Simulated assay, not measured.
Amino acid sequence: MSTIASALAASAAVNALPVINLEELGDSEQHTPAHSRLAHIARETGFFYLEGHGISPEHIAHLEAAARQFFALPAAAKQQIAIAQTRHFRGYTGVGGEITRLQPDLREQIDFGEELPAVPPSPETPQWWGLQGPNQWPQAQPTLQSEILLWLDTTRAVAQRLLKAFLVALEQPATALNQLVASPHNHRLKIIHYPGQGSGQPDQGVGPHKDGGLLTLLLQDQVGGLQVQTPQGWLDVPPRKNAFVINIGEMLELATNGYLRANVHRVRSPGAGVSRYSIAYFFSPSLHAHEVPLLSLPAHLASQARGPESDPLNPLFSHIGTNALKGRVRSHLDVAQRFYPQQYAEHLAALASLDPVQKEAAQAYA
């Protein structure tokens, strides 16, 4: 290989996400070289592809087809399950209906969660209990309910295996966070369509942000657009057939005192006439766990922990319900205005207090 070819190959290796095979990590509680590699990748990169997850290509293709079927429905059929109809932040959001870094995201989506009974509101019940409840299901696509509930169960099992591997990698008991993710679950699923945008038009598919849960398992179609922030700039995350893109959420960053970091990422809209679809599963702490515990890392790992990084415009709380509701309110102002007027007013007051420099920094967050 020539010197130039060698340099190009090395550059490509540096500027590409690594691949982890879940089968190589196994279900053992014994620390292996594969676990050491996982810990290193998660700390230094924060994003990686996951293969060997055990979900069949046929199952993935079936859910992707169901997603496209929903977004092809008439607007009126999609609006029948509009997210603004329920305090549980479940349902359909049209293009521009979700806000990231003070700007509208150019995507439409359906938000789902674990199918659970609602907690009746009362003066004694904290408002974040409104996050638990039933989903909305489209009458025009009756098979979607069973398909989504099956996917929630299937993906949860993968996420549980991966979390266990992370704990072993950090030399923790494999059961150290069992209570944090115990039933009743609080995991979420978002099915997303990014319509193409013409030249010169805004292209914020979703603005720069960190995910708020423990782990995110993302399926992309074959249209690119996902980017992760690195010290060298924005790194493209090209599609990899039937592989999940994994990233660490703020709650796992908090539990490891910043040894593991939640990385900033964004999605750029595809070009005119092109659609991008993705399916994002957010493995998140149970609302019943209340607080995120701080893991007791061994000295050689604890010495490298930098503490959790909290965005001043999106402060990080260890209380699970408070943190989760805060994130939902700032993203879905229509739901917040209708069902959470106090939090909505507090959010608007916080925005009004920003000076022009702070507001510009919030919009450009990178």
Rank of each mutant, 00 (worst) to 15 (best):
Asp105Ile: 09
Leu217Arg: 04
Phe283Gly: 03
Ile110Cys: 04
Gly133Glu: 06
Ala34Cys: 10
Phe47Ser: 04
Phe317Met: 14
His185Ala: 10
Leu254Trp: 12
Asn323Cys: 09
Leu348Ala: 04
Ala182Cys: 04
His193Phe: 05
Thr3Ser: 14
Glu253Tyr: 06
Ala349Thr: 06
Gly213Thr: 06
Pro173Gly: 04
Ile20Met: 14
Ser303Cys: 13
His59Leu: 15
Leu180Phe: 02
Glu58Gly: 12
Gly54Trp: 00
Glu114Lys: 07
His31Trp: 14
Ala7Cys: 11
Ala174Trp: 08
Phe48Val: 05
Arg328Leu: 13
Ser183Leu: 11
Leu152Pro: 08
Leu180Ile: 03
Val237His: 03
Leu215Tyr: 01
His53Glu: 06
Ile320Asn: 09
Asn21Ala: 07
Arg306Asn: 12
Val168Ile: 09
Ser296Arg: 11
Gln69Glu: 15
Arg328Phe: 12
Leu131Gly: 01
Leu219Gln: 11
Ser269Phe: 00
Gln232Tyr: 04
Gly258Thr: 05
His290Leu: 15
Phe71Lys: 07
Arg156Phe: 09
Pro126Arg: 01
Thr100Lys: 14
Gln197Gly: 03
Asp203Gly: 12
Ser278Asn: 10
Leu295Met: 09
Leu150Lys: 12
Ala364Ser: 12
Thr154Leu: 12
Asp27Pro: 00
Leu162Ala: 08
Gly321Lys: 12
Ala361Gly: 01
Asn247His: 13
Ser56Gln: 13
Leu149Val: 04
Leu38Trp: 06
Arg261Gly: 03
Thr256Ala: 03
Phe339Ile: 03
His31Cys: 12
Ile55Asn: 09
His300Met: 05
Leu301Tyr: 01
Asn15His: 15
Ala34Leu: 10
Gly96Thr: 10
Phe112Glu: 03
Asp105Met: 10
Val264Lys: 05
Ser146Val: 03
Glu44Asn: 12
Leu313Lys: 09
Arg87Glu: 13
